[in-house]
């Protein structure tokens, strides 16, 4: 039992931090621009593919720096020539614009890299088991990912709270007109924020690419869970996103560890006999079986009972 708890906690934290790495950029963009970027997972995918392409030419470490920069520049161009234009049509138009972007990015990625998975590997310098616990190995590369996401969390928190840029950005969100009068270029600030946000997605892509499968459908598969993270955490709250990531990571891993079903709970009782007929389909479904669906259940529950999310400051 102790083993299960320990291993599940460790796996949950590792997975949760990977989720946070992917979702942090999304939170940054939302908190500062009020835009939920539905194409965020697509930029994450671009990061993975650029990471793959650069690391096979220049090595992993240059890729870790260059790929986010490239993706950030693409993101800035998207903001400058696309998002800014639809901004005046309101939030629904912004959502729809980023929604349309997902189709285009996917098709472009398929045109360049094809539809089959690419062979994106863990860099040889980090390709070893960091430690072994209850006969399971924990790869160094995953721990490296963990470090990066902790670093990003602290860095972002510092940048927003304690730097001049962070102050201007926060002010520009609530009073763009006033900030503009004070001589700051609000449009440029928004463009930078969007660039940084999708750049963070690209960092996640470069790191998650070798752990997961780098393929043109990766954005579509990951997208929904990222929105769960930012909404459950409270839209725009960095601390909330971290908490939600960890919560989802832990819920999912612990759920997998337990094989409890309705049959185990009510089996043998009189009511159980009736239930087993009526609920034949879900009678033997275990908690483990539905683990990956739990985050969506959590999302719906949170939005019913605590609409602002775990740590959100405003109702969405």
């Amino acid at each position: 039992m102790l083993e299960i708890i320990f291993v599940s906690t460790l796996n949950g934290v590792l997975y949760g931090m990977l989720l946070f790495l992917m979702a942090s950029g999304l939170t940054v963009i939302f908190s500062m621009m009020g835009v939920l970027n539905l194409a965020h997972a697509s930029f994450y995918m671009l990061g993975a593919f650029f990471g793959f392409e650069i690391s096979r030419r220049l090595g992993f470490w240059p890729a870790l720096v260059l790929a986010p920069v490239v993706v950030g520049l693409i993101g800035m161009a998207v903001e400058r020539y696309g998002l800014r234009r639809v901004h005046r049509h309101g939030h629904v138009a912004e959502l729809l614009f980023t929604f349309g972007l997902t189709f285009v990015i996917k098709e472009v990625v398929e045109m360049i890299w094809g539809k089959l998975p690419v062979d994106y590997r863990v860099p040889s310098g980090l390709d070893f088991a960091a430690f072994t616990l209850f006969s399971g190995n924990y790869p160094a590369f995953k721990l490296f990912g963990l470090l990066i996401s902790v670093g990003i969390f602290i860095g972002l928190l510092m940048a927003v709270r304690h730097t001049r840029v962070g102050l201007i950005v926060q002010a520009a969100l609530s009073h763009p007109g006033m900030v503009g009068m004070l001589g700051h270029n609000v449009d440029r600030i928004f463009m930078l924020v969007f660039g940084v946000g999708v750049g963070l997605a690209a960092v996640a892509g470069v790191i998650a690419g070798p752990i997961l499968v780098t393929q043109s459908n990766m954005a579509g598969l990951l997208g929904p869970i990222l929105f769960v993270v930012v909404v459950v955490g409270g839209l725009g709250s960095l601390g909330g996103a971290l908490a939600a990531s960890l919560l989802i990571g832990l819920v999912q891993t612990f759920a997998v560890a337990f094989n409890v079903s309705l049959a185990d709970l009510f089996g043998g009782t009189a009511a159980g006999a009736i239930l087993s007929v009526w609920l034949a389909d879900i009678w033997r479904v275990t908690v483990a079986q539905i683990a990956p669906i739990l985050p969506y259940l959590l999302l719906v529950m949170i939005l019913i009972f605590r609409p602002r999310g775990l740590m959100g400051t405003r109702d969405t």
Binding site: L36, H91, L95, P224, F227, V228, V231, L235, I290, P292, I293, Y296, L297, L299, V300, L303, I304, P307, D315, T316
Partner: peptide, 20 residues
């Protein structure tokens, strides 16, 4: 109960739930 972005996200979550 919600509108706007939250509504969009709930419907996304319900969709995923139902299909799964």
């Amino acid at each position: 109960k919600r509108a706007g972005t939250a509504f969009a996200m709930i419907t996304l979550g319900i969709g995923e739930l139902v299909v799964s």
